[in-house]
Every structure is written in structure tokens, then in C-alpha cells.
Amino acid sequence: MSELFDRLLRSKDLPTIPVLHQKIVNVLKKDNYSEDDISKLLEKDQVLASKLLKLVNSPFYGVFGRVASVKRAAMLLGSNLLNGFVMSATLFNSTDKSIVALWDHSYCCSTVAGYIAKKLNMKTAEEVMTGALIHDLGKVLIKRQLPEEAIAVEEAAKSKRITALDAEKMVIGMSHDEVGIWLAEQWNLPKIIKDIIGYHHSPSLCSAHPKEAAVVHLADIIVKGIGVTGSSDLYVPALDEKALAALALSDDDIMDIVTGVVSNIESDEMFSKYLPQQ
């Protein structure tokens, strides 16, 4: 293994699953956990609580009326999604500009992926949203473990006008989807989430969950195209046509999805800050 991989994947330096997340997971594990226990934990972290309220109040989430209570928001989300939400929100809790931008991007991918999954009547919509929230997990790890190389990746992408994926391969020899699935493995995340992380740029190569990975793949492209790029990663990645064929969507269906997404973003707090204002 090269010296770079060594530094990237050295297990003693790996980020751990955030403490708050672990506490919440422990509560969720109990058969008769109370919503109050969860909301008390969530309310301890105001940033997290406000992120949660933003998510359930998104037009994509489609809740009627405005949700103002953390408890109700937690109930609406359901335990799986809440789980992934807390993990990603705490993981992305940083003052680093590019990490904040990556959170915005992940959040937007999750709402759009959920919108698509529900349109397709997928039973795994909740897992799709969860996976989308952490699909770029590998980027967080690269930034953390290899800060200098991460800057070199950004610069290479900008100056050569290539995707982050290609720049990572060039500079580090490994891309964030590979790094992400590796970390997800260390963390023992469910197979469906690992697959979404590992195949969100190449869903047609995924044998167990090609559809779920394809939905996140499409959401990623639409969200980036709209301009919620996640700062360092300016360029829309290449489309995996074969994977989209597996979703059995016609080109017209996909255009309808794009139109549906863009019609909703103006009333979504997170998206609207990326849109030109009148």
C-alpha cells in the first residue's frame, strides 16, 4: 500500500461515529423508546435541531403545514432516516467552508432522491434518502486525513476542468466513492447504505442495489446542475446511462422529474440560497 493510502486509511486516525449519534442509536434500539427521549437529545444540539426542522419543512418532504417541534419532526422522519440524518449532520458539523458546502449538497441530494424514490413508489425511499445524506462520505474522510492532497484535488479539478472524481484518481489514486464505501465498511453500516455510497457514480456496477444507487446518482447530477455543487466539486459528473435504464424511466419521465425538482426548489430554504435572486 502506498504511503498516501496508508495515511488515508490508517485506522487509529479514523473519524469515529459521532457521540450524539451513538446515544440516539442506543435509544432507537430499545423497543419501547419514547419520542421524548429522542427529542431531548436532539434539542441539546441547536444546530442539529434547526437542520432537522429545515428538512421536514422542505417542500420535497411534503408535510402539510409548518412543523415547529423537534419531537414532531423526529416522529415524521422515522427511526432509519433519523439515524442517518444525525450521523451526517454531526459529521458535517464544521466551520470549514467546504464541509459546510458539502452538507448543503448532501441535504439537497437527499430531498431530491427522496422525491424521485417516492415517484417510483420505491419501498426503500427512506434508505435512499439516508444514503444520499452521506453519499459523499469519502470526501469528508479525504479532507480530514489528507488536507493538503484535498487542496491539490480541488486545484487540479478547477485548472483542468475535470470532475472531482477524476481529480482524486489523478492526485490520490483513489476516488471518494471507493474511500467512502471503505469507511462505511469499518462503521458496519447496512449493506444498502454502503452500496449507495460506493456506487453513486457507477450504479450499473452495483449488483445488490442498482436502483437505489441510480436514484442517488440522478439526484446528484440534477442538484449539481442546479448549482448546489459542494464547493470543491464544481463539475457535474458523467451520467451512467445503463443505470438509468434500470429505473425504466423514459427521457420524458426524467425531464418531468427535473421540472418537478426545479419547481420545488424556490420554496426550499436550503436550495433557494443557491438560486439567483430577483
Binding site: I221, K224, T229, L234, V236, A238
Partner: peptide
């Protein structure tokens, strides 16, 4: 933004 995305017809659409 779409510069590096290639030019398959669906991407262009």
C-alpha cells in the same frame, strides 16, 4: 458546470 459531464443525449437534455 456540465463541461466535464460528456455529451450523451440524456445529459444534454
Amino acid at each position: 458546470r456540465f463541461f466535464a459531464a460528456g455529451n450523451n443525449p440524456l445529459t444534454l437534455k
